[in-house]
Every structure is written in structure tokens, then in C-alpha cells.
Simulated assay, not measured.
Amino acid sequence: MVPTTTVQTAGQTGQTLGVPEIADPAKVAPRDARELSKVFFDQLAVLEEGTPEFQYARNTLIEMNMSLVRFAAGRFRSREPEEMEDIVQVGMIGLIKAIDRFELSREVEFTSFAVPYIVGEIKRFFRDTTWAVHVPRRLQEARVQLARATDELRSRLGRTPTVKELSDLMSLPEDEVREARLAANGYNSSSLDATINNSEDGESVLQDFIGTEDTALELVEDFHTLAPLIAELPERDRQIIHLRFVEELTQAQIGEHLGVSQMHVSRLLSRTLARLREGMLT
């Protein structure tokens, strides 16, 4: 759920401001709201931000133009009812941004200025919340561009386009096209318990077909068991183990490093490994 946007009408009356006093701005007809909005925007331009008068004019504008949010949200009426509540709330954020940024000097109708803000806020909401996993926004936008380019080239060529063909059409490097393809996999997800019909085995679940045995996983337990055994070894034996299995020196090189013969290193290493093996098995 998105944060709820609330609008409270200030106690200051419209008469004091030199604008019409409106008992219930939310019930003003859209046609009347267009004309009244010009009056309130004109007043808003000369009021000091943060004053009760400013808040009254701004909140009245918001409530009068809520029909624009309902109009824009209507484009997404196919969504679930609970989603529509979020859509309207997000649209209200777009409306408030439009009111705060609108200037009468633009010589454009407020409705024409506000609707793109409202729709843009709703689309941004979908882009940021409908992905199964989080991916950077540039890749979210590239996914849409990639889908359009793929459909266009598939229709034109009669086959699936290559990365180079997509790269040329999208004016993007081939690496970014590949990255967008990979990111598109994050848009939808499936439950590991999702049922899959298998003609041979009947019904199976998705988790039966993904993942492999991690043979290295068993080493984790071995390392946990081995660590205290190595810690108990004498300093020279620990050093030999380190030189042989961490630095990967030969027995002859270890002998030179310690000033002993290769044969002596071999005996010490065999004795130490036998001790560790015995400790692992007990």
C-alpha cells in the first residue's frame, strides 16, 4: 500500500481572500472547477507560502480537481479493486505536484498540464512496484523499449531479431541490449511450488526442475571440524600445512624454507595428516 494522501481545508474562508467560498470543493463540477481554478491560482501566486490563506487556496484547488485523478485512474480500471485505491492515492501525489508547479503565465489549461503529471506518477508507481525483483530504473525503461523493438523487428523480418539488429534499432550498445534482456527476467516470478504438468511423471512442481546438488556444501562441515584440530597442532606442523595447501609449495621448496630435507618434510606431513584424519573420524 502507498502512503495515504489527506487534504484538510483550512479554517480561513474564501471571502477573506477575495475568492468564492466553497462549502465542499470536492463536489464542484469539472467544468466549474476549470474556471474557479484560475481564480484560486491567481490568488495563490500572491499569497505567502505556509500561511493559512495559502493553505486554504491550495487545498481548495486540490479538492476541486480530484476528478482529474479519477479520470486518469480510469485508464487502469482493469486492475484489482485494492490496487485501484493505491492508484488513486498515487494520482493524488501527481495532482499535488502539478498544482505546486503550475503557473498561469504558461497560458495552458491546468487540466492539460495536470493529467500528464498524474498519469506519470501512476506509471512510475507501476514501474517501481510491479517488478518481482528490484532492477535499476534505466533497465526497467530499457525493457519496455526492448519489447517494442523486438515486436517491430519480428513483424518486419518474420523471425526473432538478433542482438545486433535490436542494438541498431534501439540505438544502444549490444551489451546494454543483452543486459536489458537479462533484466526482463526479473519482471515476473513463479513460486517454487508452482505445479507443472509433465506428460511422463504427471504433475510436478517447479523446484523439481531447478537447482543442482552442491558437492562443495559438504566441505563446510569438514572445514568447521578441521579448524580446531589444526589450531591444536604445533607451530611447525601448522606452518607446513599452510605452506603445502595454502601457498601450494612442493615438499622440496618447504624443505628449503625450513632448512630441512624433503624426506623429513614428507615424514612430518604424513604424520600431521594422519593425526588430522584421525581427529576428523572420531
Rank of each mutant, 00 (worst) to 15 (best):
G120S: 06
E213T: 15
S167E: 05
Q55T: 08
D214K: 13
G259T: 05
I230P: 03
F41V: 02
I62T: 03
G18Y: 07
N188L: 13
L36T: 06
P228N: 07
A26I: 07
S78E: 14
T129Y: 08
R244F: 09
E103I: 04
E278Q: 09
T4F: 13
Q15T: 07
E174Y: 01
A33T: 02
P30A: 09
I196N: 05
I240M: 05
S270H: 14
D42L: 08
S78W: 15
P234M: 07
E278D: 12
E85N: 14
R106N: 06
G50F: 06
I122K: 04
T150W: 10
G14Q: 03
L226K: 04
L192I: 10
S78F: 15
R159F: 02
S67P: 02
I196A: 06
R137T: 12
D100H: 08
E221L: 12
S190T: 13
A184W: 02
G50E: 04
T60Q: 04
E200C: 09
M66D: 08
I87M: 04
E256S: 09
L17V: 01
T250Q: 07
T195P: 06
P20W: 01
A26E: 07
R77C: 10
F126H: 02
Y56S: 03
T160W: 07
V115L: 14
G94E: 02
A132I: 00
R106I: 06
D201Y: 14
S204C: 11
R124A: 09
Q15D: 13
H134Q: 08
M64L: 06
H264Y: 04
V220R: 10
Q43A: 15
T60L: 01
G50K: 12
D42N: 10
L182W: 05
A114L: 04
G91T: 08
E213N: 11
S155V: 08
A147P: 00
E48R: 15
G158R: 07
S204K: 06
D193N: 12
E248G: 00
L47T: 05
G279Q: 03
T282Q: 14
E103H: 12
S191R: 06
M92R: 11
Q12F: 04
Y56N: 03
Y187G: 00
A73L: 09
D168E: 15
K123I: 05
L153T: 12
V7W: 08
M66V: 11
Y117Q: 11
L276D: 05
I87K: 02
V7I: 15
F245P: 00
R238I: 06
A132T: 06
I230V: 15
F71G: 01
L273M: 14
T60D: 04
P25N: 07
L219K: 10
F113H: 10
Q43I: 02
P161E: 07
F126D: 00
T250Y: 07
F125Q: 03
F113V: 02
G18F: 05
A227T: 09
E174S: 10
L104C: 08
D168H: 05
T150A: 11
I62C: 00
I196C: 05
I22S: 02
V144S: 12
E35Q: 10
R77A: 14
R236N: 10
